[in-house]
Design a protein around this nucleic acid. Sequence first.
RNA 1: GGUCCCAUAGCUCAGCUGGAUAGAGCAACAGAUUUCUAAUCUGUAGGUCUUAGGUUCGAAUCCUAAUGGGAUCACCA
Length: 589
Amino acid sequence: MDFIIQAAVKAVKALYQTDLNAADIGLQPTRKEFEGQITIVTFPFTKFSRKSPEQTGNDIGEFLKNEVNEISGFNVIKGFLNISLSDAYWIDQLYTEVLPDSFAEFKPNGKKVMVEYSSPNTNKPLHLGHVRNNLLGYSVAEILKAAGYAVIKSNLVNDRGIHICKSMLAWQKFGNGETPESTGEKGDHLVGKYYVLFDKEYKKQIDELKSMGQTEENAKKNAPMIKEAQEMLQKWEAGDEDVISLWKTMNLWVYDGFGKTYKALGVDFDQYYYESNTYLLGKDIVDEGLAKGVFFRKDDGSVWIDLTSDGLDEKLVLRSDGTSVYMTQDLGTAQLKYNDYHMDESIYTVGNEQDYHFKVLFLILQKMGKQWAKGLYHLSYGMVDLPSGKMKSREGTVVDADDLISEMEQTAKEQTEALGKVIDYTEDEKQELYHTIGMGALKYFLLKVDPKKRLLFDPNESVDFQGHTGPFIQYTHARIRSVLSRVEQPPSPLKGEYKTLASEERDLIFALTQFPETITLAASGYSPAIIANYVYEVAKSFNKFYHEKSILQAEDEVTKQFRLQLAAASAKVIRKSMGLLGIEVPERM
RNA sequence: GGUCCCAUAGCUCAGCUGGAUAGAGCAACAGAUUUCUAAUCUGUAGGUCUUAGGUUCGAAUCCUAAUGGGAUCACCA
């Protein structure tokens, strides 16, 4: 729409002898109840036009109509100049912009960005909260890729620490040598089972100690279970062979399980980092910070940074015994990532409960003069809550990712069968379709919401398949493919022969042309929700068109070919948009 | 207590850098299928945009404060 802005700048200059920047012209889509597609708000111009908003709008409208031949007409309502572009313009847009393969394909922008997401703990299976994280990270990575970035998807696996020792210890004590093979249980679930078991036993011991007169605080410290787990962690850090060997074995079980879940979710990674390799990093940075005077050492030997002048607190960056804390590791890992890739931006997909941590992390790196620190971004998202409140792994009040996925597939199956669809599919084809639809419903449900908002998930209320949902959009795609499959040859252009658009056609073309700037917007805001809401608009526009106008039974061949092209373009935009959300679209459903 | 985030229809959410009578979906009600897939389409009903000030020609949007909800402020990660 640049040409309209340019022309408007020219109009203002010619009519009112005033120089404006392109940014001063506020273009917006015309509201549905008015004639036209593009609206210029003329209130701001009255200052120098010294005329009423209506008169100003009329003046500019008249000028534009004479100046720009794509403009076929205009009307003015109060301070709003509604511009109609000619059908020839919109038809040309379809053929020369939307239909070519290059549509919405961005040239590489020369920038490299790392998107870290997932970053699981290896002591328990993934739950719904992780699902949101994974889908969000994956989608943002795909959107950035589409916008021209070179993207590295990374996963920082939290594979060490007290939590995994808890699972290991419980397995040693109560496991009787169980393995995923011997039980048939998915590895991550098996390990998670012992994590829960640890907590159960631990609580029992706490209660015992309390009944013997200890305070809650002391009981938590003194319970044998926790002491053993801590000993185990020390052994791990000391490189004890047996502990390391058990640790490796159980982590492999977990990775095997995660691999299956990742595959079902359709996410992938280019680079894995493991905390067992990175947890000692960061001490160099602490030294560097001390040398630069950014950090200071207290009498007990601990190292801190004073952020009070930034409205924050003092923050510990190294323990008095010289060991690392979370912050130390993250400082080191940030440097490691940068050394590995020299990326321009680095995104951390982590829940908003860690807002403070990342604020501090980024601030420290900036204070240390790391020029790459300005490219760090915390993609913070809201928690997924249940009607009962927060999900807690230890208490078993979680919506398990694998369970959820199979429930979604099951629901997709029931819906499909109830509607009597695809009865001629083979079992394998059906399974694949149910997975596609079920995941489409789940992914869309999670991604259509602004990431920073918290999300309420009611397990008793199934995710919708109708209305503003993934399956609705998938269905629209399947519909189009069905129509296209009925013509023998690919639609031919017949450019220039179709002259007059129906309003449904014009609206649909307009929606399609918005795709590139929607990608830009979503990329700059790191928001899959923008894509999700956009593709819904496209699907709605198509369905309306489909309902009002017959494609295959069009009045004449020219119209039919044009509509086939329009349908094909719609299918393409839907498929690509959904791809950015990590959602597949079926040929039939 | 300090800091940060959120608040829009009964429910779930849109509303881009301030612009027209605040929009969708679900749920409710009424319709549409001899015609390309009814997981669709059309219509009805549903709102003091939490509240109070302020900036502005103009505020759901920006600023301040209050209220309610959430998070965080560990020598945990």
